[in-house]
């Protein structure tokens, strides 16, 4: 597996992969090895793995897809692992499919479950916006799985014995990497911190237009709640980016999350499934949001939202 890290700390998704990698390695009769690329000394945070394969080179100073790809392709050719695990987020979305071609390995994307059955890795993958699951085998002598965040429990930092660190000399290909990392941009602070709100009124593409955001804003006011949104709403500029809940937005855990016109795509659920109370309004009874919601309604949001506001203000 690949360790993702920034600022000297391994990511949550990497800690989620650690325990699973060790379990799968056990099932396959092998060991869990973690690739660490760049100058970071992370072995202390990667307890549970047997080995850290550490490679450093100026091209690996930050995350550059081309450099990571050259480095990993080299490690895969040298080590011939049975299975490569990556996160199904930016880094895994860049590298998994590219390595599937370069290393000629079958790949399972969007994996939420992984097991070894009769010596073969089996992945369950979430597709069609969460409306279908596919159970796939990765037969042969190699395979790649990219894992959806939140699928496995994260190993707490400092658990397990520290792995042995093997320094791997960088391949010459890294000298030829022409992609440049220009700058890293930290998230902007918003006018409202949606991660601190007790109640969130969250709006999705079902709202249809910027003008209609007003009706959910009025409901949020009546409830004393903060207004948040799914990605299409912020992409369209209907609400600021700082209000976005989900994979590339913020992870929230309010006491109540009211979702209006949000389908419940896996990338959205990643950010809100731990809310204490989830109430979802969606006209499509088969929308995946109802799989995580505690209460649901197929009422039209344009009827329900004003009715709620009226009651609360009444």
């Amino acid at each position: 597996m690949l360790a993702e890290h920034s600022g000297g700390t391994v990511s949550d998704s990497t800690r989620e992969l650690l325990g699973k990698a060790a379990e799968l390695a056990g099932g396959l009769g092998g060991t869990a090895q973690v690739a660490v690329l760049g100058p970071a000394d992370l072995a202390g945070q990667l307890g549970g793995a047997a080995t850290v394969l550490w490679m450093d080179h100026p091209a690996l100073a930050g995350y550059v897809p081309q450099a990571y790809e050259v480095a990993l392709a080299h490690l895969l050719a040298e080590r011939s692992p049975r299975l490569l695990l990556l996160s199904n987020a930016t880094v895994g979305l860049d590298l998994g499919a590219a390595l599937a071609v370069l290393w000629d390995a079958p790949m399972a994307a969007y994996a939420t479950r992984l097991a070894v059955e009769d010596g073969v890795p089996v992945a369950t993958c979430q597709v069609l916006g969460g409306k279908a699951l596919a159970e796939v085998e990765l037969p042969g002598d190699r395979g790649i799985a990219t894992v959806v965040a939140g699928s496995f429990p994260a190993s707490p930092p400092g658990t397990g014995t520290a792995p042995e660190v093997v320094a791997v000399p960088p391949p010459p290909g890294l000298d030829g990497v022409a992609t440049r990392l220009r700058r890293v941009i930290e998230p902007e602070a918003g006018d409202v911190d949606i991660t601190a709100a007790d109640v969130l009124v969250s709006v999705g593409r079902g709202i249809g237009s910027k003008d209609d955001i007003e009706i959910v804003a009025e409901l949020a006011d009546a409830l004393g709640a903060a207004l948040s949104a799914s990605r299409p709403v912020t992409d369209n500029g209907w609400l600021p980016k700082t209000r976005q809940v989900g994979k590339s937005g913020l992870k929230v855990k309010p006491r109540a999350y009211l979702a209006f016109g949000i389908s419940g795509a896996p990338e959205h659920l990643e950010g809100m499934r731990d809310a204490e109370l989830i109430i979802a309004c969606n006209t499509d009874a088969s929308a995946p949001i109802f799989d995580v919601a505690h209460y649901g309604t197929t009422a039209d949001l344009f009827d329900l939202v004003p009715a709620l506001t009226e009651r609360l203000n009444g």
């Binding site: 079958p106 790949m107 399972a108 089996v122 992945a123 979430q126 597709v127 969460g130 409306k131 279908a132 699951l133 596919a134 159970e135 796939v136 085998e137 990765l138 037969p139 395979g143 989830i278 979802a280 995946p288 109802f290 799989d291 995580v292 919601a293 505690h294 209460y295 649901g296 309604t297 197929t298 009422a299 039209d300 009827d303 329900l304 009715a307 709620l308 009226e310 009651r311």
Partner: peptide, 26 residues
């Protein structure tokens, strides 16, 4: 990969649906 099967996710934690018109649901 070799697809063994495709299926709808089990609805183990399916939401409890609120009945009635918009006003009753509100």
């Amino acid at each position: 990969p070799l697809v063994r099967r495709m299926y709808a996710p089990e609805r183990t934690t399916r939401a409890q649906m609120l009945e009635g018109g918009a006003d009753a649901v509100a």
